[in-house]
Design a protein around this nucleic acid. Sequence first.
DNA 1: TAGAATTGTGCAATCGTGTGCGCCACTCAC
DNA 2: GTGAGTGGCGCACACGATTGCACAATTCTA
Lengths: 334, 334
Amino acid sequence: MPVTIKDVAKAAGVSASTVSRALQDHPRISVQTRQRVKKVVLELGYSVNNVARSLKTNRSRVIGFVCPELNNVFFMQVGKGIEDALNREGYSLIVCSSGESSRNETARLQLLQQQCVDGIILIPATHEGSHLQQFFDAGIPIVLIDRKVDGFSTDAVLVDNVDGSYAATKVLLKTGCHPIAYIGGNKSLTTARERETGFRKAHADDGLEVDETLVFNGNFHWESGYKLMKKLSKMSPFPKTLFVANYYMFVGVVRYLVEEGVRRHQVGELPLPNMTLANFDRFEDGAVFHEVAVVVEQPMEEMGQKAVQLLLKRIEGNRVDFPLELRLKTKLST
Amino acid sequence: MPVTIKDVAKAAGVSASTVSRALQDHPRISVQTRQRVKKVVLELGYSVNNVARSLKTNRSRVIGFVCPELNNVFFMQVGKGIEDALNREGYSLIVCSSGESSRNETARLQLLQQQCVDGIILIPATHEGSHLQQFFDAGIPIVLIDRKVDGFSTDAVLVDNVDGSYAATKVLLKTGCHPIAYIGGNKSLTTARERETGFRKAHADDGLEVDETLVFNGNFHWESGYKLMKKLSKMSPFPKTLFVANYYMFVGVVRYLVEEGVRRHQVGELPLPNMTLANFDRFEDGAVFHEVAVVVEQPMEEMGQKAVQLLLKRIEGNRVDFPLELRLKTKLST
DNA sequence: TAGAATTGTGCAATCGTGTGCGCCACTCAC
DNA sequence: GTGAGTGGCGCACACGATTGCACAATTCTA
């Protein structure tokens, strides 16, 4: 039913190979033939069968994107960057989620391998990375985003988490906020560790002690922010300043505060209760509370774009012996 | 480099066809041979080349999902439902965004066609649908989600918007809220029209007039909610009740209120200013303000799942003459 | 003007699988 | 013991495209 290259060939009175070459603007095809072929292509509504092409050329022009969850604004902002960059190059994107499980991640990667993707962009589910080696060995380039993993090293696009959280903490300390409560992520993730490092470094550089009783680790989900804020609010004295290491935990924190109806700091001005808040990540269309003291913004779309650039380089065969690691700067907004 | 069926055949001392059949548990292959083949498959780490298989069988086990934007929590919640359902069936998902443009939508659909997807799930970019016919004619089943289009009819999974917004409005009116300001979406979209219909119907059934000076249309993005709330807030008397027809415009509304520092209705209790708010859509991990009077919740993941069910039925060849339209119920939460 | 170089096109092989058909060997019934 | 039936497997082709090579026709060079 669908029109193939042979149909075009027949209709144009040439061979299939000529059609193929004409469409690729091969120099050895005469201008007349080329035009005639293209005309017929339009008339018949022919469009190349990428499956057949992939089989022959061993290049599918599809890349895979695996991330922990689909319904996560951070990952999808990165995904948007990836998709935009890929579309410009005529690539398609297969999206999978690992559900934050290494087993699922492996399963998804195997599926992608079967689909013969030309490369993979991965936001790792966990800190485990040894299962990635097999795919790399099979010749599939992999670029990591956001997090690094143990036991496997490859190209990666990361942000300067240490610097971002260092700068934010500095600002807080400079305005006299001390001690600062801290809600971090699961320390098995590099991002969580790095952000905490920056937090501590800022204290050290100012000759201040971190109040360890105020340092907690969640899991980057809103529920943990909610629970930890609840715990914090039961402490006395009530902590005046809080740094939350990602957006979702921040949402949980605010949600708790809202639900508890804690009074605002300055009535009629700040929507926030009697606390100075700082956090990682801002979303134009998601964050209802924009009057946070300090926000560390990550260049999410750019991360996706850079990852695509790196990946396509590898696919083009621009093989480099050592893995490349890009560290993008965060932006501090106060 | 990658191991093919021939390598397996050689190693197992059989022909490629036998390997193929053994892996499909063909009854005419002896148990011994089958086991030997499967053993070799494991040893060599063979995994089927889906590109070749697709070419031969004319079934790619890939389906395409086109939505207006990737970085949209509603669409991605639907996407999650789709992905989960597909993975259970061993399908992969190519995700594209149309950027809310019919031209882009067509381009993405063409790409999907080239990739030989078995079917397409589409959240239409606009009300325009005539360009979809060609893909349907080419034998690619299409299932619409959320919105219907003009000029093309096919299977669709929708929610009962009229009923949802009717019920919410009823609740508001019953508690004495009147008049109710309304911020709707672009009326070229069926969802926007239906939600407004429900809003008006509730008034009519109660014998109340809609105050037309309080009815506005945005475009479902936060900016329009922001702007329209600004306009509303300049009116006198200040409207006491507002129904917002989707989540993002609601975010814009709240954002304006927060930024302006409007006083809360009941200090220490409601985080909201002197207004009773109602809106469409709730997100567990996104909505900071959960103390809205009335929320119409859509079964987003279920929409994705149902769409997959419908689509796979069509792909299996379960051809029906007339398009199926599923209307899922919304849930009212007060 | 003859041979070389160039241009334009077709033939045929190939990518990795799936599958209809045929062949061989064995079993079974009479 | 012979014919039919059947279980187990391989041959060969096809899917739709790309591409090295060959070849005819044309142009160029000396």
